[in-house]
Nucleic acid binder design. Sequence first.
DNA 1: TCGCTTT
Length: 589
Amino acid sequence: MEAFALLSRGGARFNKDRFRDQVRLFETTGEASTSSDTGIGAASLPTELDFFKYASGSDTKPRSTKSKGKLPAAATSPLLGSSMLLEDAMSVDEEGSSGDESSTGRSIHRIAATGSRIPEPAGDFEILSQRYGLSQLLLDNLASNELSHPTAIQCQAVPILLEKRDLAGISPTGTGKTLAYVLPMFALLGSPLTSKDRPEAQQGTKEHGPRALIVCPTRELAGQIYNECMKLAQGRKWNILLFSKGASSSEQKKAMGKVDIVIGTPLRILAAIREEAIRLDNVRYLVLDEADNLLDTDFGKQTEEVLESCTHPDLQKCIFSATLPQVAERVAKRVLVDPVRVVVGVKDSASLNVAQTLTYCGTEVGKLFALRQLLATSPPLPMLIFVQSKERAKQLYQELLYDNLTVDQLHSDMTSKQRIESVARMRRGETWVMVCTEVMARGMDFGGIKGVVNYDFPTTVQGYVHRIGRTGRAGRTGVAVTYFTDADVPFLRPIAQMINQTHAQIPEWTLKLNKARKMKSDEKRRRKVKRDSVTKVAGGLVGRRDALRRRHGGKKEKKLSPRGGRNGARTSSSAIDASGDDGEWSGLS
DNA sequence: TCGCTTT
């Protein structure tokens, strides 16, 4: 009974007006808290993206006694010399204690930086340029890609990296982390290396192979980072290599030649090392993107092996993610040398631009029912629908195929080509609904995504944060809908709390769940739920697909496109359209 | 469970 009541209240009667209110409510609360930090009225951008707020914010605060143009090397910090352990630092940012950091602008952006000799943040690219001498070409490339103002993480991370420091950068999804490490990478590399530049050096063994390496967990993300690099690479003959399965093998063979930057997935890089197609002893700039994922138990071994292959004495390392659980933090502490740890906002928190809801659906049947209801009434399109397994992705895809919308799928059972094409259709705006596995959960930046549906309940809080972070990017708003069934209830608490923290409206009883009911293996925060097949369910939903197929005469009905081709204006960190569609990196294959 | 080499 209660189940039915909740179903109809929470999800099935999903109604546009109610929803709209939620978004508004949400935005209001979000802005209220940021404006209290700045003493400035609410603006349309979230703190971490509002650079003007940053600029004017320093006027409303007491001026720093330090001179603004002071060299960062001489900059002091409340934590100077304390050389805090990464773990120790955790308590600091949670209490929001930052000593005199209001004078540096960190508090305005809610940046917490810990470590020794922390460089001053830079409020815009001109300041950066003056301080560190960025090339005019680099500045032009930023400008021509509409990257006019740095985001919070960029303000703080770029100076740190330019001073050749190790860094752990933690910033919410969609806040421009890629550019935060790509920009200093190009600045530090200076110019592309050619054999003409250094004929003798080419002979020396130390001078082979890339000088910069970016590691990330999926091929799609690698491709996206590649595109982001190409934006700043314009005008010079940088040799940038996309190194993952699905990328061109002939291109990858060049890895031993004059290569500046390699971007790749762990296993592919290791394979290349083993077959001596690449060597990493010339790498001076190493990035682990989605670091907690790369350092977790599954990926960890591979990643550490890659790390061990980077033997250059001047190796600079940085890791980035929106989430960094303690386990990963511990590894990071071990790997990084005298690092600065930067946290924008609150660590492990969800994007404030996403309106979140949690919906009880009782059973598998209930979820399908709720989803159809959502799709039929006020779906936030385009959207991603996350499921737990590849099989379920295929099933749900098939199930939705004959509904009147353009649906697509993406999971690792598809071929490289299929995956590339699926991403391309999404980028071009041809797909309304993409059914996908965790492969799409991290880093992917389809700028126009309006909705995320957690059809299957996420197995970790981090997973939740990253999934819903596919929307609400670069200052836009988005919505996230999470379904759960009776089987998910024991695992509900941490995610329900997270949603509650961000002011979303969720069924009250989910918050009152007895703490004892939460997962036993709290350490890993993982779980296993055996799920029925999406389609193999009792009752009236069986056979629906066949009915639809008959109705459509075996053909797909003409389907509307979610967007009229291209996305509208886009802001800084949204990587996608500005550089065109898929072709850029898939074209290499 | 998912993701990640090449042959």
